[in-house]
Design a protein around this nucleic acid. Structure first.
Lengths: 157, 157
DNA sequence: CCAATTTGGTTTCTTTAAGCAACTCTATTT
DNA sequence: AAATAGAGTTGCTTAAAGAAACCAAATTGG
């Protein structure tokens, strides 16, 4: 695909997409959140080619999203588990899932993933952007305060 | 890239990624949220090839994420604006940005995008998944209540 | 008014990644 | 000892990404 790399982009979204912004990586993270840990299970549940899975797992490990754990007594049995960095993608994945459920509902009558709070059994409400006092915000409610150029010291122009 | 399509996947994350899950689409949406509307502006700000931009804009319009508005008096001047569906990606983009800022900080001393509430001027706190009563949740705090097969009516087994 | 430029593309070509299938190598099972 | 499973690797084919050139309508500018 001759991708452009965004490793050094000054946009953190671009840098984030560089790590988990391809179709498979985020789905692998999602599967990990569902509890999948083994190579073959990822392969079967995602229907991904083995070489691609291998590549993605390696990259995710390199990027610190997953860690590879040897669970065989003496090698050859591994698990891929989320790191804290990986688990921190939770809001992203959930927000994406909710967006998908809302705007691209399942073809048939599939339920839109009933995700629930383990403690209370209650469903999870939509992920929102909030302000400092907990009110929901939309795109229009935010602004970027005037991008100062990197080398500038608050010149009073 | 010979991608696999996920249009009819029963996973809404997969379906979402099908629409905005490539490197460019989400960046285009992000740029839109920053206010970019014109073809040339997208092209310059993203550094994307024109044919790819064209393709992505078309797909985003097809998918209802953007709408194409004729703003020339009689053609040849267009704007691409977010639809409600597109604006609804706000939490996704912000969550991704925050993840990027946290885990892949900018190479140099770039500031991590100071996004603020227009009303109060306060910075935006991290996007989190909450439960019904507003407490933050992690991956471990949620569960999927036992996937009932699509055609099943609450059998009391 | 005619030339240059801008905007929004399309076409062609090359590079690179995705997907598939077959193969390998070690461990475990039978 | 043979068969199977887990975790990859290799090679090939196809399709998409990227670059650059080209194009046509509309606008700008002298």
């Amino acid at each position: 695909m001759a991708r452009k790399r965004f490793d050094d982009s000054n946009c953190s979204v671009a840098r984030a997409l560089n790590q988990v912004g391809d179709w498979w990586s985020l789905l692998i993270v999602l599967q990990s959140m569902y509890g999948t840990r083994r190579f073959v299970d990822f392969q079967q549940e995602l229907g991904i080619a083995k070489n691609i899975l291998c590549n993605r797992l390696t990259r995710l490990v390199e990027n610190g999203v997953l860690k590879k754990v040897d669970v065989g007594e003496h090698g050859s049995r591994f698990e891929y588990r989320l790191t804290e960095k990986g688990r921190d993608l939770f809001p992203v994945v959930i927000a994406l899932r909710q967006w998908g459920d809302k705007w691209n509902p399942a073809p048939d009558d599939e339920a839109p993933l009933d995700l629930r709070d383990r403690a209370t059994g209650q469903p999870i409400p939509p992920v929102q952007v909030h302000n400092a006092i907990g009110e929901p915000l939309t795109v229009r409610d935010v602004f970027v305060p005037d991008t100062p150029p990197p080398g500038s010291k608050k010149d009073p122009a």
